[in-house]
């Protein structure tokens, strides 16, 4: 069953007086439970694609469906609700809130779901434990290493039990050893949870670990390769 369906997606940006197509008539379907890498050089349109898939941006033309639902007529708050429930984001620079400790950062998406704070704390602790971070739960992000911060961010992405994890260059700010750990974490997560994980990267070695590689160039898909693992 397809989780994501992009149908003739065009995204155009106005740069001064000039219009620039960042995504050009892009069609793509991603099955539920896939581990997908989207690769491409800088400016190829991969982050724009992630923003559209993550409901942070709307396409100029075409239709995007997540689990069969399209989002033409939804307002910003409806989109925020769907992002909160269906999508977990992992960013290159972690984007943890420096004012909150690790536990509070993981709890944050649950706070916007209006659930009991005790239950939220239990869930957050569960994911911190899975990430091997129970001992740093009370520490602020700036007290953690890059790898620990990224694992906190992954826990935050998973705490709402979303169907889709979007990771934008998740190892881009980490050293090679930590990058391997994080990548293995994604692979292991996928194996255990069968969640749909899309990793956006420019690193071919990371992409090689995924089940499907989609390569973008100048806003178009130039390679879409299923790989058997």
């Amino acid at each position: 069953m397809s989780l994501i369906k992009l149908d003739h997606i065009v995204k155009t940006y106005q740069v001064g007086h000039e219009k620039r197509d960042v995504l050009k008539d892009l069609c793509l379907t991603i099955k539920e439970g896939s581990l997908v890498a989207i690769i491409g050089a800088s400016g190829s349109g991969k982050t724009t694609l992630m923003n559209i898939i993550g409901l942070l941006d709307q396409p100029t033309l075409g239709e995007y469906q997540l689990r069969g639902q399209s989002f033409h007529n939804l307002n910003a708050d409806d989109l925020a609700r769907i992002r909160n429930q269906e999508i977990g984001f992992v960013f290159q620079f972690f984007y943890l809130l420096p004012r909150l400790n690790a536990l509070e950062n993981v709890m944050l998406p649950l706070q916007y779901q209006n659930i009991d704070p005790k239950l939220a704390q239990e869930k957050a602790l569960h994911w911190l434990e899975k990430m091997g971070l129970t001992h740093v739960a009370q520490q602020k992000p700036q007290q953690l290493s890059g790898g620990q911060q990224q694992r906190v961010a992954i826990a935050r992405a998973l705490v709402t039990n979303p169907s889709l994890i979007l990771a934008d260059e998740p190892t881009g700010a980490l050293d090679s050893k930590t990058s391997d750990d994080i990548l293995n974490l994604f692979i292991s997560l996928h194996a255990h949870t069968q969640k749909t994980i899309i990793i956006i990267t420019h690193n071919p070695q990371i992409a090689e670990q995924c089940h499907r590689i989609i390569q973008l160039q100048d806003g178009e898909i130039i390679r879409d390769e299923e790989r058997q693992k």
């Binding site: 993550g54 925020a80 992002r83 909160n84 984007y95 916007y112 779901q113």
Partner: peptide
């Protein structure tokens, strides 16, 4: 601004 952006991305409504 970054904090606001992160909160909005992970599901905060404008009202939040």
């Amino acid at each position: 601004r970054r904090e606001i952006g992160i909160r909005l991305a992970i599901g905060a409504r404008r009202a939040d």
